[in-house]
Design a protein around this nucleic acid. Structure first.
Length: 438
RNA sequence: GGAGAGGUGCCAGAGUGGUCGAAUGGGUCUCACUGCUAAUGAGUUGACCUGGGAAACCGGGUCCGAGGGUUCAAAUCCCUCCCUCUCCGCCA
């Protein structure tokens, strides 16, 4: 959430910045009105409490010296103040709760570098890479010449080779749940091993819980605004995580870290669960959009000064995996209207799927500033000033496997219908070179 | 799931209604002393909200797992919940 003090002090600037992502100025005016009332009420409440505190001390003194009558007179007085106090207490706590609710729903202020835009069409293509042509900057993309046998969509390939069984997955769980089989399942597993090993030079590997408390979902910004998108286990009041970002961010919840321990780098492989409530009927074929998928996430806590460099590091790690897998991709700088709620700046990586002709989002690398840290209350003590500050959080997918799986089987499909396994995965797949055709 | 014990500051740990933001010990940092290290002595050391101040800082409030309640007054009494530990049951 935003720092209420920054909103107070720089109201116009905040309004202007949030307008670029479609937040109306009235929302902030309301917040300021509530804030003013809340502060008035809590000041009044604190004054009354101070009065009762001092009367109570008086009473204690009188009791000790045996002046019971005077003590009783003061008791009466204190009780009367107490009646007034309870009104202000409830007024103040209602207003404070209202202020917090409002603050929790206001998105982050975009970074100054985030391109301003009104739809995803305004996202900026920064660069693109393919194994044939290497890295190119700018939005003009020349796709490598794909052969006819690479133009088959992955769901057809998967069915044909018996490595993807969406029909039976639907029987078990419903549509938009995947089931990999045989070497298809092995390859999906290999991808995670490959990625976790690739980050092991600098990142601590975590296997977090995938069912989390409400507070954990609030910390990352997934609640209260996006309740509809999450799977909830009502009986136990738990949510299924939509990404490992959720448990990894809350790992340090309510902690004060030492500056010398920063940056903290974490990586985790988990399943991710998404209701996809708003997207019924869109991209429903194959593995394009799923209720459950596996992903390796990389995440960092940094000082504000380290954040920029870390953002670049996370992005380059995600890109490097794609390059090692030999997949054509492009890097998008998301514009203000396409930016995630909690993010200040996000780069998306999209892989080209020759079988469908679509660019598929396979990673999203974001810098959240202190927005999540404020919600999760993650701080650090500066070693120079000894002051306590909020950390910055950053994270990225590296990578989301279902879509990568789809792009691999399409890209690596041979003219005989078999699939060549990317070199970097073979070590994790019993050194098998290809998934044979049927 | 059942029975019991417990959750206090950076850590350990005392505190069963007022003088308790909290003894004591350890750690931290500062100073003194010692040729160095060590030891010793003195001091220091919480977070959050809010008002004032350029700031240092000063005032008020809150916080002893969380939320309610009793009381003039709650770490302390009552209720609910969460968590940890021990035993029993169940179980991959």
């Amino acid at each position: 959430m935003l720092d209420i003090r920054v909103v107070r002090d720089d109201l116009d600037k905040v309004k202007q910045a949030l307008a670029t992502r479609g937040v109306e100025a009235a929302v902030l005016d309301d917040l300021m009105r509530i804030d003013q009332q809340a502060r008035t009420a809590s000041t009044k409440r604190d004054e009354l409490r101070a009065e009762i505190n001092s009367i109570s001390k008086e009473i204690a003194k009188l009791m000790r010296s045996g002046e019971v009558d005077s003590a009783n007179t003061l008791r009466e007085k204190s009780r009367a103040v107490g009646d007034e106090l309870s009104q202000w207490e409830s007024k103040a706590s209602n207003l404070e709760a209202e202020r917090r609710d409002s603050l929790l729903k206001i998105p982050n202020v975009p970074s100054e570098d985030t391109p301003i835009g009104e739809s995803e069409a305004d996202n900026v293509i920064l660069r693109w890479w393919s194994p044939e042509t290497g890295m190119h900057s700018g939005p003009e993309i020349e796709l490598p010449p794909y052969s006819e046998h690479q133009r088959k969509p992955h769901w057809e390939i998967g069915g044909e080779l018996g490595i993807l069984d969406l029909e039976r997955a639907a029987k078990i769980s419903g549509s938009m749940f995947p089931m990999f089989r045989g070497l298809g399942a092995t390859m999906e597993r290999a991808l995670s091993y490959f990625a976790l090993d690739a980050h092991s030079d600098a990142f601590e590997e975590i296997r977090p819980p995938t069912l989390v408390r409400t507070a954990t979902m609030v910390s990352t910004g997934h609640l209260p605004k996006f309740e509809e998108d999450a799977y909830r286990l009502e009986r136990d009041d738990l949510y299924a995580i939509p990404t490992a970002e959720v448990p990894l961010t809350s790992l340090a919840k309510d902690e004060i870290l030492k500056e010398e321990d920063l940056p903290v780098r974490l990586t985790a492989y988990t399943s991710c669960f998404r209701r996809e409530a708003g997207s019924a009927g869109r991209d429903t074929r194959g593995l394009l959009r799923l209720h459950e998928f596996d992903k390796v996430e990389i995440l960092a806590y940094t000082t504000p000064d380290q954040a920029g460099e870390m953002h670049a590091e996370l992005l380059s790690r995600a890109e490097s995996l794609l390059q090692r897998l030999g997949l054509t991709y492009r890097v998008l700088d998301l514009c203000t209207s396409d930016l995630g709620n909690s993010s200040k700046r996000t780069f998306d990586l999209e892989c080209y799927s020759p079988g469908t002709g679509l660019w598929l989002e396979v990673s999203s690398v974001s810098w959240f500033g202190d927005y999540q840290a404020r919600r999760a209350n993650i701080r650090f003590r500066s070693s120079e000033t000894n002051q306590i500050e909020f950390v910055h959080t950053l994270n990225g997918s590296a990578l989301a496997w279902a879509r990568i799986w789809a792009v691999i089987v399409e890209t690596y499909r041979q003219s005989d219908g078999s699939i060549l396994i990317p070199d970097v995965l073979r070590g994790y797949m019993r050194n098998i070179e290809r998934i044979p055709s049927k």
